[in-house]
């Protein structure tokens, strides 16, 4: 595991070096590796496609322009990118105060159902996604961040603490609290919704 991680770090360092040397393909490779994950993080925190896309672009732009300042000895590139994105998401919460949710999405005008998905399955999936989104939005921003980083991104508590800029113990208790709250808010509809979401995906 450690060897794999070391190898992966060395690989990323090599890509960074290439990008810094002016190779555009290096940037493209970094975007390919982290773009989708970063978008999911932003979307899960903001629940708005437009905002998630804006923050994804802003974060990458900032990161790529300041790539020479990245120190691989201090943190991994993933944690660094996620820290940038989370801080931008925080600015968006502050600016907007009340998070907006895409109406078109809620009304199902832009339902991105896989081609083979039956209409019923699409409705179930949308309901499940909506319930989870609502439950996540009911959490405080810090708890939401902790839950999304832990369960949505599969980060360790140490990585979560680095991204959120808090002690590891705080990250742990935030995950625990968020877990409890999420369980409470999803309880009326049951964990069956999560099951449905898993089944259709």
């Amino acid at each position: 595991m450690n060897d794999y991680r070391r190898q992966s770090h060395a690989e990323i360092d090599a890509i960074i070096a290439r990008a810094l040397a002016g190779d555009q393909a290096g940037y493209a490779e970094l975007y390919d590796r982290y773009g989708a994950g970063l978008y999911r993080l932003c979307y899960s925190l903001l629940m708005n496609e437009q905002d998630a896309e804006d923050i994804l672009q802003e974060s990458f732009l900032y990161a790529f322009k300041n790539l020479q300042r990245f120190d691989s000895g201090k943190a991994s590139l993933k944690t660094w990118l996620y820290t940038i994105a989370v801080s931008r998401c925080r600015n968006t919460y502050r600016r907007k105060r009340f998070l907006t949710v895409d109406i078109s999405q809620r009304l199902g005008l832009e339902l991105k159902a896989p081609p083979a998905e039956a209409p019923e399955a699409a409705i179930i999936r949308r309901d499940a996604e909506e319930s989870i989104s609502r439950a996540l939005l009911d959490l405080s921003p810090r708890l939401r961040e902790a839950i999304v980083l832990r369960y949505g991104q599969g980060m360790t508590y140490r990585e979560i603490s680095e991204v959120m800029g808090c002690p590891q113990k705080t990250a742990e208790s935030r995950v625990r609290l968020g877990h409890q709250r999420l369980k409470q808010s999803l309880q009326p509809v049951g964990a069956g919704l999560l099951e449905e979401l898993l089944r259709v995906h």
Partner: peptide
């Protein structure tokens, strides 16, 4: 949660 949250907002 671990299995369903990553499906949320899949780009």
């Amino acid at each position: 949660l671990e299995r369903s949250l990553p499906t949320l907002g899949r780009p």
